[in-house]
């Protein structure tokens, strides 16, 4: 016997959590809504098999996770090897010919406090959204638990793990620049000019 709650109450109970999870990964509201709907409908079919070992929410998130991975599998983006070359080039631009940093780097003051600030999460989400699609997909899929590097490369058509590291390095470098200018530089008006 299953121990799920009345499906008519699912959306009210879990809709927001599932939607937020999906939105962070899909970065498209309509697609995220579709994922949530598909998840509930799949759960409806499978509810007899719900074992009650995990919470209902964890069970639903698990289904959603599979739906998202399926989505990435079906909608592979074009990824050419040229991208790696230009990414390497972009990474190199952060350094001078001797391999030293050529961009300004300053300490971020009390970064942990930012986590308690709603506005910070908005900025962080915007910074991720501003990454080129294939970098954002990769950065986000890395946070889906239980996916190995090999599986991620396969899903996103990345030819080698080495390429994946280059891409992630670039993604993080860009996020750093974005957060630096959009968040950590806000109170330092005199430094506003140097950040892009």
């Amino acid at each position: 016997m299953s121990s799920v709650s009345d499906p008519a109450t699912w959306v009210a109970q879990h809709g927001d959590a599932l939607f937020r999870y999906a939105l962070m990964k899909m970065r498209d509201e309509t697609q995220a809504e579709d994922m949530v709907q598909e998840t509930f409908l799949a759960a409806l079919k499978a509810r007899e098999r719900f074992s009650g070992q995990s919470s209902e929410k964890t069970w639903l998130i698990g289904i959603l996770k599979h739906k998202i991975i399926d989505h990435f599998r079906k909608h592979k983006r074009e990824q050419s090897s040229d991208d790696i070359e230009s990414l390497t080039e972009q990474l190199n631009q952060q350094f001078d010919h001797t391999g030293h940093w050529s961009i300004p780097m300053r300490t971020w003051q009390e970064p942990e406090q930012a986590h308690e600030n709603k506005e910070f999460w908005k900025v962080f989400t915007v910074c991720i959204a501003h990454l080129p699609d294939h970098l954002a997909d990769l950065f986000i899929l890395r946070e889906v638990k239980g996916l190995s590097s090999e599986e991620i490369c396969k899903l996103l058509d990345i030819s080698t793990t080495n390429n994946m590291w280059v891409m992630l390095s670039r993604a993080r470098m860009r996020l750093r620049g974005c957060l630096d200018s959009r968040w950590f530089n806000r109170s330092n008006d005199d430094q506003n000019q140097e950040a892009r």
């Binding site: 939105l23 962070m24 809504e33 999460w121 962080f124 889906v144």
Partner: peptide, 16 residues
């Protein structure tokens, strides 16, 4: 932290 489903992040909008 952002990707944790348990953390109902206030920065991300809820279902419309």
């Amino acid at each position: 932290r952002l990707m944790q489903p348990e953390k109902d992040n206030q920065g991300i909008p809820p279902l419309s």
